[in-house]
Design a protein around this nucleic acid. Structure first.
Lengths: 211, 211
DNA sequence: TGTACATCAGTGAACGCGCGTTCACTGATGTAC
DNA sequence: TGTACATCAGTGAACGCGCGTTCACTGATGTAC
C-alpha cells in the first residue's frame, strides 16, 4: 500500500475519461474518486486541489505529445514526410486514446493560462517550429509559422471533432492520406507541392505540371 | 415595464459574453443577473432554467448564422466565390462579435445533443450542403462532404482560436485571402482549382499549368 | 377624462443540494535492532 | 528470524460555500367603463 503511483495513474486515467465525457467543471472530485474506486480524501494525497490535478495531468500529457512532435520534426526528413508523420501521430492518438485527445484539443484550456511556450512542453509550439524549419530550408514559402500551425492543427482537430459527434464515420487513421494532402495543400506554396508530389501521391497535379 | 424584450435581449448578450469568457458551467445565474443589472429571479421570467437559456441562445444564434450560410450558398456563384464569402462571413463574425463566435464554435456544446440537422438551423449542415452542390455541379471532385466541411471549418476556427489566445496578432479579416486560398487548396481537386485560379489570385498556379 | 382593476416584468430573501476540501483516523508495509 | 515502531496511502464523515431555483411580493403599465 505504500507505493501510491499505481493509484495515482488510475486516478489520472479515470479523470481524463470523465473530463472528456462531461467537461472539467461538470466532473466532481466524488465522480473521479468513485470511478477510481478510492475515497475522496485519497485524491488529496496525490494532488493539492482539483485545479492542480487538471493542470498537472494536462501539462504532463501535453508535454509528452510535444516530445513526439519534436522528435518527428528532428529526423531531418523532407517536409511532406514530416507532415505525414505528424498527422499520423495525431490521428493515432485520437483513435487509440480518444479521451486524452478530447481533453487536450477539444476541451479548451484557456483558463490554464500558464501553458509553457517551450516546444519541449507544447505541441503547438513544436508544430510551429517544424514549419519554421521547413521555411528556412526553402521547402515551403515564407509565411507566418503561427498561421500555418493553426491551419494544420485545424485540419486535424476539426475532423476529429466531427468524428466525436458521429458526423464522420471513417476512422481518422483511414483519412490519413486525405488529411495529409489537405495539410500539404493548405500550407505549401506551389513549388513545394510540386517537389513533394512524387512521394506523396499528388500524381494528378504532377502530371498536369509536367505535361 | 410591461415589455420585457429589451431586458431579455440584454440578458442574452451579457450571458454570451460571460459564457465566452468563463465557460457556461463557470457562469452562474447570479453572474448573468448582475451583469444585466437585474435580480436573479428576473431570469426565470424569460427562461425556464439555466439550461434552457443556454440552449435557446445557442440554437437561435446558430440558426441565424446558418441562414446567412444558406443565403450565400444559394446565390448561384462559382465555388471559389462561395468559399470566399463564407470565410469572410466567419472572419467578420469573429472580429465583430468575438464572444458570440467563441460561444458558438470554441466552447463545445456536445451536451446539447439535440442540435437540429436541418441546414436552416445548423451552419455546419449548410456548409456541407454548399460543398455537396459544388460537387454536383462538377466544380470540385467528389468526396465526403462532411470531411470537406470539417476541413473548411477547421481552417477558419483554429486560426480564430489562435487569435483568441494571442498567438496570432493579425485580424482574421486581414487573413481572409490566405485562409480562403487554404480552404480552396484543401477542398478542391486540381481541376477546380485551375478553374477558379483566374478570379481568386492563384496566378502562380495558373501560369504553371498553362505554360 | 378619471378611476378601478388586472396584468406581468422584475425583486430579493430563502431553500435544499452538491461541490471542493479538511482532518482525525486506520492499517498495511518498510525499517531498525 | 522476530518484534516494535515509524511511515504514509487511503478512509469517510463533516465543514462551509455558492449554486440553481422558488415564491410571496412590488409597482408600473395597459385596459375597461
Amino acid at each position: 500500500m505504500r507505493d501510491g503511483s499505481r493509484t495515482r495513474a488510475r486516478i489520472e486515467a479515470d479523470a481524463i475519461a470523465l473530463f472528456a465525457a462531461k467537461g472539467v467543471d461538470a466532473t466532481s472530485i466524488r465522480d473521479i474518486a468513485q470511478a477510481s474506486g478510492v475515497a475522496e480524501g485519497a485524491l488529496y494525497r496525490h494532488f493539492r486541489s482539483k485545479d492542480d490535478l487538471v493542470r498537472r495531468v494536462f501539462l504532463d500529457r501535453y508535454a509528452a505529445l510535444a516530445g513526439d512532435v519534436l522528435e518527428i520534426g528532428g529526423r531531418g526528413l523532407p517536409f511532406a514526410a514530416v507532415v505525414e508523420l505528424l498527422v499520423r501521430r495525431f490521428a493515432t492518438l485520437f483513435e487509440e486514446d480518444r479521451a486524452l485527445f478530447t481533453f487536450l484539443f477539444v476541451n479548451q484550456h484557456m483558463h490554464l493560462g500558464e501553458v509553457p511556450v517551450e516546444a519541449r512542453a507544447n505541441p503547438v509550439e513544436a508544430i510551429k517550429q517544424a514549419f519554421g524549419e521547413a521555411m528556412e530550408r526553402g521547402e515551403i514559402p515564407r509565411a507566418d509559422p503561427d498561421l500555418l500551425a493553426a491551419l494544420a492543427l485545424g485540419l486535424v482537430v476539426q475532423p476529429a471533432i466531427f468524428r466525436l459527434y458521429g458526423r464522420i464515420g471513417t476512422p481518422l487513421t483511414a483519412l490519413l492520406p486525405a488529411i495529409t494532402r489537405a495539410v500539404l495543400a493548405a500550407t505549401s506554396g506551389e513549388h513545394a507541392r510540386v517537389r513533394v508530389a512524387a512521394t506523396y501521391g499528388l500524381r494528378h497535379k504532377q502530371e498536369a505540371l509536367s505535361s
